[in-house]
């Protein structure tokens, strides 16, 4: 139904982070991290910081800092049960995305965390990804989605705020939830 990938497409899959992929990661402020739990249920969660927040420790190893978040820690729980992970790196303005698949574990290695210090604060944990495969994903999805067009930002105005969504779902005061969120977003590390 989907057809077979062409030879160039198959050949583009690398087993290591070469200098091009390293440069891509060094300019990427955002990625999605997919994991699965012991029962095989999947989860996908966003990670973001300054470009290059994911450290390339060597050509087979990445480190992703664990910053302040919702403390749900689904990814860590999942990785402990099932180390397989899939990553998509985005560079704003770039049509293509970098895909990295591999296996992961959590670490509190001081030398790794030291490299992730921001504003004097270092994360408590990091996710180490041992790279199994890495490849560029073609830009059609980004092109079709007009993801980086400035006009596309107007879409957000048509979507309710998180405060409104949570308020409706839990019968809370939307303005109060939004105000709490804005205050919380001021502390990023």
């Amino acid at each position: 139904m989907l057809g077979e990938p062409g030879e160039v497409i198959k050949a583009k899959v690398r087993t290591r982070i070469d200098s091009h992929f390293h440069r891509f990661i060094a300019h990427s402020p955002f990625l999605c991290l997919a994991t699965t739990d012991a029962a095989g249920y999947a989860d996908c969660s966003p990670r973001g910081d300054y470009p290059g927040f994911v450290k390339v420790l060597d050509e087979h190893t990445l480190a992703i800092p664990d910053r302040l978040g919702n403390k749900l820690a689904d990814s860590f729980t999942n990785i402990a049960d099932n180390p397989g992970v899939g990553l998509i790196f985005l560079v704003p303005g770039h049509r293509e995305t970098l895909r990295v698949n591999g296996t992961a574990y959590a670490t509190d290695e001081p030398d790794v965390l030291a490299r992730m210090q921001v504003e004097g604060k270092r994360p408590v944990l990091a996710t180490i990804v041992e790279v199994r495969e890495a490849f560029m994903h073609c830009g059609r999805a980004v092109v079709r989605s007009r993801l980086w067009h400035a006009e596309s930002q107007a879409l957000a105005e048509e979507v309710p705020s998180l405060g409104q969504i949570v308020a409706d779902q839990l019968a809370l005061d939307a303005a109060a939830v939004d105000a709490d969120l804005e205050a919380a977003y001021k502390v990023l590390y």
């Binding site: 390293h22 440069r23 060094a26 300019h27 300054y50 290059g52 927040f53 450290k55 030398d111 030291a114 490299r115 992730m116 210090q117 921001v118």
Partner: peptide, 13 residues
Amino acid sequence: PLSRGGSEYVHLF
């Protein structure tokens, strides 16, 4: 050696 992203960026990119 334990660059937090500044000197490593200057040197590599």
